[in-house]
Design a protein around this nucleic acid. Sequence first.
RNA 1: GCGGCCAUAGUCUAGUCUGGUUAUGAUCCGAGCCUUCCAAGCUCGUAACCCGGGUUCGAAUCCCGGUGGCCGCACCA
Length: 507
Amino acid sequence: MNSERDFSDIITGLAKKRGFFWGPSPEIYGGSSGFYDLGPLGKLLKNRLENAIRTSFVRANFWEVECPTVSPEAVWKASGHLDGFIDPVTKCTKCEQIYRADNLIEEQSPGAQIAGKSVEELTEIIKELGIVCASCKSPLGPVDSYNLMMKTRLGLDQDAYLRPETATTTYLLFRRFLTFFRDKLPMSVFQIGKAYRNEISPRQGMLRLREFTQTEGQIFILEEDEQNWPQFEDIKDEELPLLSYPAQEKGKTEPVKMKMSEALKKGHFQKPAYAWCVFLAYSIFRNMGFSEEKMRLRQHLETERAHYAQDAWDIEVYTESFGWVECCGVHDRGNYDLTRHQEFSKEKMHVKVNQKPGVPNVLEIAFGVERPLFCLIDNAFQPESEERDTDWLRFPPAVAPIQVAVFPLMGKPELQEPAHLIFDEIVDAGFISQYDVGGSIGKRYRRQDEVGTPFCVTIDYTTIEDGTVTVRDRNSMEQIRISKDELIVVLRKLVKGTIQFESLVVR
RNA sequence: GCGGCCAUAGUCUAGUCUGGUUAUGAUCCGAGCCUUCCAAGCUCGUAACCCGGGUUCGAAUCCCGGUGGCCGCACCA
């Protein structure tokens, strides 16, 4: 446990020192837990992740939308968050220990009828059944509700809440989507935006935030299309590390590599369309730079599934800091949400299927961006060694915050002048680049290693003679010398990963 | 929210028990000299006692409250 804590401290220390993230924010006023600032490199990294997410969704024919983060109470009444997104809590009158009232009742009086009860009714039930404090056996205070949504107000007197998920705000647009997609289902949309949860006591730094960026993609789909999903063909031979719930019930913790077609045949997935969503989520995480060995797909046990979810799989990422971390949920939400909004808003949320109105189902991919952000730094971390005496980050080139650093070998004007020209050219080509002239060349390489920059271009006296520069590879610390005319093309291929640095090394 | 432990330069840290000079050291960072590819060297420099109150002639040090962190409980739909 100690080593885990130490490791997350190392990651946090490096992140703070080099400008990935700072907090809890606002630091100069002491900070509030659950809030973090992203520094310049953290923001760059987050942009890269969001771009990877965006590109992956767009390629899968999803369309991006953006909704307000604040919605009036009626929305959350309908979504179930106002009543369901609460914890009924009770406090011991003597030792002041706080309990989840429903859990405590269930514990001391199994089978008690507590589902859907109000706080007043729960208070009554506690009295009737003689439920007492679990630790000191004293009487309990009245049941209070604690809602995890942040409350605010519109104008003078309209109650409103900051969204605890982006999904609900997406569902509200259903009828607009029908028009945009010309009444043709399935319709695929996604949103990347802020969401808020008033956690009682957030811990584990960047992993549990009160304000975070959420990505949610939805497919509105007819039941018959869930079974008949042509795109499944494209991925049927892809192998995913699956940990199904029957396997977990047998005590297994190791995922099994399985072809998607086989997983479907074995009944791990009921619907090809849902299985395809699970694969899409997995491929998004691969595109964000996670290696396959550090990921697994874990199916929710029936008991941990939300009431609306018919099936749920999580993507978990292995970290040195915290072990397996839940990073993404893929849910089969059925038609729960649209039906609820139809009922509460009186707006029709259906389409005509075979002359009959039907409310479509929703398949959903949902994840916070900050978790993968932290996990990626954790996964990229490499400790100092004999050949390199700083800790460094081994980001995949495509997601590294800074892609190319440019150094004149020394600070002499005759080297700086061509170096600046090359730097400008690299920036113009669309790379995020940093020019650094401070300190010895070794020190500058070390600085870039520490923030995970995959390539460094150095301009030396040979550059002046023959127009060549050196490109230095972060992972191997090896160098190649190439003409500055082919520099941009080579850098593009290296960053994209279409060529490997080793193949350019002349031995 | 509760209990235990904790909070000193950007980062890591000594000092706190036993109150008393200019608050220790490392590293980082900046400027300069030197330097033709992996933390070189030399010179100079910036930078800290979490916040608020109390006790005291005097508080980084003792007391109270707050905020934040770690661990345990609870929570994480």
